[in-house]
Write a protein that binds this DNA or RNA. Sequence first.
DNA 1: CCTTGTTTAAAGGATG
DNA 2: CATCCTTTAAACAAGG
Length: 330
Amino acid sequence: MPRPGKDSYGNEKPPYSYISLTAMAIQSSGEKMLPLSDIYKFIMDRFPFYRQNTQRWQNSLRHNLSFNDCFIKIPRRPDQPGKGSFWALHPMCGDMFENGSFLRRRKRFKSMPRQQKSHVVAADGIQVKPMSHMDAPPSALLHEQAKMRLSQMAPGTHAPLPPPHCGLLGVPAQPVTTKHPFNIENIIAPECKPASILPHPGLAPTLPGHCGYTVCVTSTGACTWPVHGLCSTDSITGLPSMVLGPVAHVSRDFISQGVPLKTSGNAPAIPVPIKPSPLSALPPPAVSQASGPVVPVAVSLAPGSLTPPSGSSSPAVPTTVAPTLAIATR
DNA sequence: CCTTGTTTAAAGGATG
DNA sequence: CATCCTTTAAACAAGG
Ligand SMILES: [Mg+2]
């Protein structure tokens, strides 16, 4: 019994595919996402076999990251300097190792159907698998957390994900374990990311089925846009999809990787009220490319002001702004 | 230059 | 046997 707890396997090749090794690494992280170099580290740390021939297997690993839809890139925020992106598991990839083998999956996960054709798509492309099972570590982790990911995405089951907990100005005042790749901070496009986008305790789940966030806008810019959102059900995935407008404000990376987020295209921005307003007071959102039933989403601003988007002719208004973005999940 | 990421091609094993 | 999944190699672009 060499190393109880550690994985080791001596110099033998561990019974895990690159996909399972990578999934393990990602799931082991507090934020459920890792830069490439940390995936390497994770594997080398606990599997001595992979301390040799690094050139070979790391090339293979990178191939797996790119080639397989179950791995997606999460762009770095401005407050996270560094080289590449973060790698995370696709929110819909489910439990890829249901069959109990970590060497070979039953089916390969594909995020997009064949092509993005306009006609009807066979439900083949994406499905949520029911899961069962418990294994011995580290497989157990893989299975359990697959459940977590899916329950987070499941329509109507949107649990209070990030416990409303607030830190001030970039100080991570909450355990990283509660963060995840699809926090609003990671979804908003880079040019709209101030260093401080945090879940707001007070405003958080004001409505059933909603998640609230406070977006703190600094005087230096970012988040100058009038925010508005739509929520609809994606016709393909059947999942709730959040719609933010204008298009430039959602990280393009998510859409291109098949993550069920949608933008409202060229829908005009809605003037944002200076004072918090009830949902009903919001103007009806412009028609968008959203495919399902569309529901307005609450957007309100704390007393303060907005800076106009760059290129806009509107004058900048002084003060700080704390818009609340409510993301409807149904 | 090195790291990160995408892509094509081929080969071997598992599955049915 | 055909098909699917994984591994490996390799060319290449982009960026720090
Ligand atoms: Mg990928």
